[in-house]
Design a protein around this nucleic acid. Structure first.
Length: 496
RNA sequence: GCGCCUUUAGCUCAGCCAGGCAGAGCAGCUGACUCUUAAUCAGCGGGUCGUAGGUUCGAUUCCUACAAGGCGCACCA
């Protein structure tokens, strides 16, 4: 230690030392608890009548000393409960030992259950032991920990002192479980595909690159698992899904973290219409099993996730919200239209990008209640099958809720020759400077050449779904450890 | 990537506009208190004012650069 410890830290070290001198192991091995705090509160009547002893364990989060008695709250994984300590009950020596404990310490306590004059369920402690000494002070109990930087960097503190944070991540886990249950129940098989790929694909995004020394080979972290899952459909896995991290080397903001969690599933012998029915059923199943309701308050909007969801074609929605049949326009007319509506068209390259801009800016914000936008222009969808009634379109849809996209699905392109032509169009866009355009994946085309059954596939950003169902407006609040810069330059280098 | 804002005690925040000994509440320490609950009462300690420069007799305060974070815009899921 170069710097002198502040008093607050020095006192904690001194208490640790005194405990050791008294023969107390400040970091023991185990504790047999009989109840969680929530169980004691739930079973209070029975426990108090029987007079049975309960044993709990957790962190001291508050402390109210009264001379020869003391109240404190102990927080465990299920909640918190008050303990009551009396010198008369414990004897002088034991009671004074408690003086060496403090807020932040993890202790075990046993005793009988009663209700205080103010009505709070409380444990009257007959014995206790130290389970872990805390050498750092906790953030304040009343204001909590507000500094977002510390909350994200030291999530453990956020979890200890800010009520509701654990709940967000419990909900997250339930959402993922309910998706698994839904798909498992319908015969989908969960699989794992490579996170490190020789060639990336399945989305338009810039990838991360890493290097495998053993093979002296550059590898890409996956931006999507689509092309691998479709290879599995070729191989006869007719219903597959994967929930995994994808990695995209792009901007970060409250809707984007460089690593994020995606669900993708593929369903052989179905088309995008079947898929929309399944997706709305899945969304309803998830929200009702997790929240016990099909309605969500998000911001100012009350959103109902009860099927059926509104379905509008891309062109129809544009006619309704823009008043123009944009699908009939060429690139120049589209850009003129965008400029006319005050949009920034500087970065727009190609007809597809112009259509995308118009829809994103002028249509999608209107889609508050769940809406499937269908039949996207072929330029925007290099992996989707051509529409059976209009060769300018694909059989693709995106689901919008509250103006944001909650998934992207289509009748999968299974014609290897058409797939090659689409890849080649992407390659041209790439050579024109579109860094996010799809690279040609010969190995994937080869797989299609062996014959892929007609299929429908869907992708859903899990983090955004968690945001929707937990009412959080930043992706960083639904990811336990969001990506952060190191506090000091070089702090991430293990060799110093 | 651009713009705006933030960074002061362990935590939550004042102070800065108009330069002059570094402040409060909680937490901590000492004492009182055997049903408190933001316990109360009396007293005490605690600071690299984000980092580095500049201006000045003197900088937490003014200026510049840098760093981290937040919000908005742009891009994306």
């Amino acid at each position: 230690m170069e710097r002198e410890l502040s008093e607050i830290l020095r006192v904690r070290r001194e208490k640790l030392q005194k405990l050791i001198e008294k023969g107390v192991n400040p970091f023991p091995y185990r504790y047999s608890r009989t109840h969680l705090s929530s169980e004691i509160i739930a079973d209070f009547e029975k426990l108090s009548e029987s007079g049975n002893t309960v044993k709990i364990a957790g962190r001291i989060i508050s402390w109210r000393g009264h001379g020869k008695t003391l109240f404190a709250h102990i927080q465990d994984g299920s909640g918190k409960i008050q303990i009551y300590i009396r010198k008369d009950d414990l004897g002088e020596e034991k009671f004074e030992l408690f003086d060496l404990f403090e807020i932040g310490d993890i202790i075990g306590a046993e005793g009988t259950v009663f209700r205080t004059r103010m009505g709070e369920v409380t444990i009257k402690v007959s014995d206790f032991s130290l389970l872990a000494k805390s050498l750092k002070p906790l953030p304040e109990k009343w204001h909590g920990l507000k500094d977002k930087e510390i909350r994200y960097r030291k999530r453990y503190l956020d979890l200890i002192v800010n009520p509701g944070v654990i709940g967000t991540f419990v909900t997250r886990a339930r959402i993922i479980k309910s998706i698994r249950d839904f798909l498992d129940d319908r015969g989908f098989l969960e699989v794992e595909t490579p996170a490190m790929q020789v060639l990336y694909g399945g989305a338009n995004a810039r990838p991360f690159v890493t290097h495998l020394k053993a093979l002296d080979l550059d590898l890409y972290l996956r931006i999507a698992d689509e092309l691998y899952l479709k290879r599995l459909v070729v191989g006869g896995m007719e219903k597959v899904y994967e929930i995994c991290k994808d990695f995209r080397n792009e901007g970060m903001d409250k809707n984007h973290n460089p690593e994020f969690t995606m669900l993708e599933f593929y369903w052989a012998y179905a088309d995008y219409r079947d898929l929309m029915n399944l997706v709305e059923e899945m969304m309803f199943s998830v929200v009702t099993s997790v929240l016990d309701t099909d309605e969500i308050n998000y911001g100012e909007n009350l959103i109902s996730l009860k099927p059926p969801y509104r379905r509008m074609t891309f062109a129809g929605a544009a006619r309704k919200y823009i008043g123009v049949d944009i699908i009939e326009l060429d690139e120049k007319s589209l850009i003129d239209l965008a400029k006319e509506r005050g949009l920034d068209t500087d970065r727009v390259k190609g007809r597809g990008a112009a259509l995308d801009l118009l829809s994103s800016e002028l249509v999608e914000p209107h889609l508050i209640q769940p809406t499937f936008l269908t039949d996207y222009p072929v330029e925007l969808s290099p992996l989707a099958k051509i529409h059976r009634e209009d060769p300018r379109l694909t059989e693709r849809f995106e689901l919008f809720i509250n103006g944001f996209e909650f998934g992207n699905g289509f009748s999968e392109l299974t014609d290897p020759d058409d797939q090659r032509r689409r890849f080649e169009a992407q390659a041209r866009a790439r050579s024109m400077g579109d860094e996010e355009a799809h690279p040609i994946d010969e190995d994937f085309i080869l797989a299609l050449e062996h014959g892929m059954p007609p299929s429908a596939g869907y992708g859903l950003g899990i983090d955004r779904l968690v945001m929707l169902l937990t009412g959080n407006s930043s992706i960083r609040d639904v990811i336990l450890f969001p990506t952060m810069k190191p506090e000091t330059p070089g702090a991430g280098n293990p060799d110093g």
